[in-house]
Amino acid sequence: MTSFEETKQLLENSTFYYIITTNMEGRYTYVNNCYNEAFRDIHGCIVGQPYEVTMHSDDCKVCEEVALQCFTNPACTFPATIRKHDGKGGYLITQWEYKAILDEDGNPAGMFCLGYDITDYTAYHEQLQDAKSLLQEISFYQSHVVRRPLANIMGLAKVLENMPLDQNVRNICKMLIENSLQLDAVIKEAAARQLVD
Protein backbone atom coordinates (compact mmCIF):
# COMPACT_ATOMS: atom_id res chain seq x y z
CA MET A 1 0.00 0.00 0.00
CA THR A 2 2.93 2.33 0.65
CA SER A 3 4.06 2.27 -2.99
CA PHE A 4 0.57 3.28 -4.13
CA GLU A 5 0.60 6.24 -1.73
CA GLU A 6 4.02 7.31 -2.95
CA THR A 7 2.89 7.08 -6.58
CA LYS A 8 -0.25 9.05 -5.80
CA GLN A 9 1.82 11.78 -4.14
CA LEU A 10 4.31 11.84 -7.00
CA LEU A 11 1.62 12.21 -9.67
CA GLU A 12 -1.03 14.14 -7.72
CA ASN A 13 -0.52 17.21 -9.92
CA SER A 14 0.50 15.47 -13.14
CA THR A 15 -0.73 17.18 -16.29
CA PHE A 16 -0.38 13.98 -18.31
CA TYR A 17 -1.19 10.93 -16.15
CA TYR A 18 -4.49 9.99 -14.55
CA ILE A 19 -4.48 8.11 -11.25
CA ILE A 20 -7.58 6.57 -9.75
CA THR A 21 -8.33 4.03 -7.06
CA THR A 22 -11.56 2.16 -6.46
CA ASN A 23 -12.83 0.03 -3.64
CA MET A 24 -14.21 -3.50 -3.96
CA GLU A 25 -17.67 -2.10 -4.67
CA GLY A 26 -16.25 -0.38 -7.75
CA ARG A 27 -16.56 3.15 -6.38
CA TYR A 28 -13.89 5.79 -6.80
CA THR A 29 -11.91 6.29 -3.61
CA TYR A 30 -9.29 8.62 -5.11
CA VAL A 31 -8.67 10.60 -8.31
CA ASN A 32 -5.66 12.83 -8.97
CA ASN A 33 -6.01 16.41 -10.20
CA CYS A 34 -5.49 15.50 -13.87
CA TYR A 35 -8.38 13.02 -13.83
CA ASN A 36 -10.52 15.37 -11.77
CA GLU A 37 -9.90 18.25 -14.20
CA ALA A 38 -10.71 16.09 -17.21
CA PHE A 39 -14.01 14.70 -15.91
CA ARG A 40 -15.31 16.89 -13.05
CA ASP A 41 -17.29 19.22 -15.34
CA ILE A 42 -19.00 16.21 -16.90
CA HIS A 43 -19.66 14.09 -13.81
CA GLY A 44 -19.30 16.41 -10.81
CA CYS A 45 -17.45 15.11 -7.76
CA ILE A 46 -16.17 11.73 -8.91
CA VAL A 47 -14.98 10.27 -5.60
CA GLY A 48 -17.71 8.02 -4.24
CA GLN A 49 -19.35 7.46 -7.64
CA PRO A 50 -19.29 4.05 -9.39
CA TYR A 51 -16.35 3.60 -11.77
CA GLU A 52 -18.57 3.11 -14.83
CA VAL A 53 -20.03 6.63 -14.64
CA THR A 54 -17.16 8.04 -16.74
CA MET A 55 -16.96 5.37 -19.42
CA HIS A 56 -18.63 3.85 -22.43
CA SER A 57 -20.95 1.10 -21.20
CA ASP A 58 -19.35 -1.49 -23.50
CA ASP A 59 -16.01 -0.98 -21.73
CA CYS A 60 -17.31 -2.02 -18.30
CA LYS A 61 -16.73 -5.65 -19.30
CA VAL A 62 -13.09 -4.80 -20.07
CA CYS A 63 -12.69 -3.37 -16.56
CA GLU A 64 -14.22 -6.47 -14.99
CA GLU A 65 -11.97 -8.82 -16.98
CA VAL A 66 -8.82 -6.83 -16.23
CA ALA A 67 -9.73 -6.58 -12.51
CA LEU A 68 -10.13 -10.37 -12.39
CA GLN A 69 -6.67 -10.76 -13.95
CA CYS A 70 -5.25 -8.37 -11.35
CA PHE A 71 -6.72 -10.24 -8.38
CA THR A 72 -5.67 -13.57 -9.87
CA ASN A 73 -2.08 -12.27 -10.30
CA PRO A 74 -1.72 -9.45 -7.75
CA ALA A 75 2.01 -8.97 -8.39
CA CYS A 76 1.35 -7.98 -12.01
CA THR A 77 -0.17 -5.01 -13.82
CA PHE A 78 -2.56 -5.43 -16.73
CA PRO A 79 -3.43 -3.03 -19.58
CA ALA A 80 -6.87 -1.78 -20.57
CA THR A 81 -8.06 0.64 -23.24
CA ILE A 82 -11.18 2.49 -22.07
CA ARG A 83 -13.38 5.07 -23.77
CA LYS A 84 -14.37 7.95 -21.48
CA HIS A 85 -17.22 10.42 -22.04
CA ASP A 86 -15.82 13.72 -23.34
CA GLY A 87 -18.88 15.81 -22.39
CA LYS A 88 -19.58 16.60 -26.06
CA GLY A 89 -21.35 13.42 -27.06
CA GLY A 90 -18.13 11.64 -27.97
CA TYR A 91 -15.37 9.77 -26.21
CA LEU A 92 -11.76 10.16 -25.20
CA ILE A 93 -9.70 7.03 -25.66
CA THR A 94 -7.60 6.26 -22.60
CA GLN A 95 -4.91 3.67 -21.93
CA TRP A 96 -4.52 2.23 -18.43
CA GLU A 97 -2.43 -0.07 -16.28
CA TYR A 98 -4.45 -1.80 -13.54
CA LYS A 99 -3.02 -3.27 -10.34
CA ALA A 100 -4.81 -4.96 -7.47
CA ILE A 101 -4.72 -3.29 -4.06
CA LEU A 102 -4.47 -5.83 -1.25
CA ASP A 103 -5.02 -5.20 2.46
CA GLU A 104 -2.52 -6.13 5.20
CA ASP A 105 -3.79 -9.73 5.17
CA GLY A 106 -3.41 -10.06 1.40
CA ASN A 107 -7.12 -9.83 0.67
CA PRO A 108 -8.46 -7.78 -2.25
CA ALA A 109 -9.11 -4.18 -1.17
CA GLY A 110 -9.55 -2.33 -4.46
CA MET A 111 -7.93 -1.33 -7.71
CA PHE A 112 -5.14 1.13 -8.52
CA CYS A 113 -5.13 2.49 -12.07
CA LEU A 114 -2.63 4.68 -13.89
CA GLY A 115 -3.71 6.01 -17.28
CA TYR A 116 -3.46 8.70 -19.92
CA ASP A 117 -5.38 10.08 -22.89
CA ILE A 118 -4.43 8.45 -26.22
CA THR A 119 -7.18 10.04 -28.34
CA ASP A 120 -4.79 12.06 -30.51
CA TYR A 121 -2.37 9.16 -30.83
CA THR A 122 -5.22 6.89 -31.97
CA ALA A 123 -6.39 9.45 -34.54
CA TYR A 124 -2.84 9.87 -35.89
CA HIS A 125 -2.40 6.10 -35.99
CA GLU A 126 -5.60 5.72 -38.04
CA GLN A 127 -4.46 8.48 -40.42
CA LEU A 128 -1.11 6.72 -40.81
CA GLN A 129 -2.86 3.43 -41.58
CA ASP A 130 -5.02 5.19 -44.17
CA ALA A 131 -1.92 6.76 -45.73
CA LYS A 132 -0.16 3.37 -45.83
CA SER A 133 -3.18 1.81 -47.53
CA LEU A 134 -3.18 4.60 -50.09
CA LEU A 135 0.54 4.17 -50.71
CA GLN A 136 0.07 0.43 -51.18
CA GLU A 137 -2.71 1.11 -53.66
CA ILE A 138 -0.51 3.59 -55.54
CA SER A 139 2.37 1.11 -55.50
CA PHE A 140 0.15 -1.63 -56.91
CA TYR A 141 -1.19 0.76 -59.52
CA GLN A 142 2.31 1.83 -60.51
CA SER A 143 3.75 -1.64 -60.67
CA HIS A 144 0.83 -3.36 -62.40
CA VAL A 145 -1.21 -0.78 -64.26
CA VAL A 146 1.46 1.74 -65.32
CA ARG A 147 4.36 -0.63 -65.97
CA ARG A 148 2.43 -2.87 -68.39
CA PRO A 149 1.82 -0.17 -71.03
CA LEU A 150 5.29 1.22 -70.32
CA ALA A 151 6.79 -2.18 -71.14
CA ASN A 152 4.73 -2.22 -74.34
CA ILE A 153 6.04 1.23 -75.32
CA MET A 154 9.62 0.10 -74.65
CA GLY A 155 9.09 -3.02 -76.78
CA LEU A 156 7.58 -1.06 -79.65
CA ALA A 157 10.43 1.47 -79.52
CA LYS A 158 12.97 -1.38 -79.74
CA VAL A 159 11.09 -2.83 -82.73
CA LEU A 160 11.17 0.58 -84.40
CA GLU A 161 14.86 0.96 -83.57
CA ASN A 162 15.63 -2.21 -85.59
CA MET A 163 13.71 -1.03 -88.65
CA PRO A 164 15.28 0.94 -91.47
CA LEU A 165 14.82 4.53 -90.32
CA ASP A 166 16.45 7.85 -91.02
CA GLN A 167 18.85 9.11 -88.35
CA ASN A 168 16.34 11.60 -86.88
CA VAL A 169 13.69 8.92 -86.20
CA ARG A 170 16.42 6.54 -84.93
CA ASN A 171 17.51 9.23 -82.40
CA ILE A 172 13.88 9.70 -81.32
CA CYS A 173 13.54 5.92 -80.79
CA LYS A 174 16.76 5.89 -78.77
CA MET A 175 15.50 8.79 -76.55
CA LEU A 176 12.13 7.08 -76.20
CA ILE A 177 13.82 3.87 -74.98
CA GLU A 178 16.16 5.77 -72.59
CA ASN A 179 13.29 7.76 -71.08
CA SER A 180 11.12 4.64 -70.78
CA LEU A 181 13.95 2.87 -68.93
CA GLN A 182 14.36 5.86 -66.60
CA LEU A 183 10.62 5.94 -65.89
CA ASP A 184 10.62 2.17 -65.28
CA ALA A 185 13.53 2.57 -62.81
CA VAL A 186 11.66 5.34 -60.93
CA ILE A 187 8.53 3.17 -60.67
CA LYS A 188 10.57 0.16 -59.43
CA GLU A 189 12.36 2.34 -56.87
CA ALA A 190 9.07 3.78 -55.56
CA ALA A 191 7.63 0.27 -55.28
CA ALA A 192 10.74 -1.00 -53.46
CA ARG A 193 10.60 1.96 -51.04
CA GLN A 194 6.93 1.18 -50.37
CA LEU A 195 7.82 -2.42 -49.49
CA VAL A 196 10.48 -1.25 -47.03
CA ASP A 197 8.08 1.21 -45.33
Rank of each mutant, 00 (worst) to 15 (best):
Y116N: 10
I19G: 01
S14L: 08
C173N: 13
Y98H: 08
I187R: 14
A75C: 03
T21A: 02
A67N: 11
R27C: 11
E5W: 02
L195Q: 07
L156F: 11
M163Y: 15
T22E: 01
F4H: 12
F4E: 13
I138N: 01
N179E: 13
A190R: 11
A131G: 07
Y116D: 11
Y141F: 08
R27V: 04
G44E: 02
L195F: 03
I138K: 10
T119N: 03
K84W: 11
E64V: 08
D41R: 00
N171T: 13
L114M: 15
D41H: 00
H43S: 13
E6C: 04
T7G: 02
I138A: 09
K88E: 14
N13P: 00
A123W: 00
F140Q: 07
A80C: 11
T119D: 03
N33K: 14
S57C: 07
M55F: 02
E178R: 05
E97Q: 15
S133Y: 02
S133V: 00
N107Y: 12
N162G: 14
H85G: 01
M163A: 15
M111R: 04
L183W: 10
H85I: 02
E6A: 06
T94A: 10
Q142S: 12
L181R: 09
C76G: 07
Q95G: 03
Y30I: 04
K174M: 09
P149Q: 09
M1F: 09
Y51W: 09
L134E: 10
C70S: 13
I172Y: 13
Y121W: 11
A131M: 13
M175G: 06
G106K: 05
H56R: 06
V146R: 07
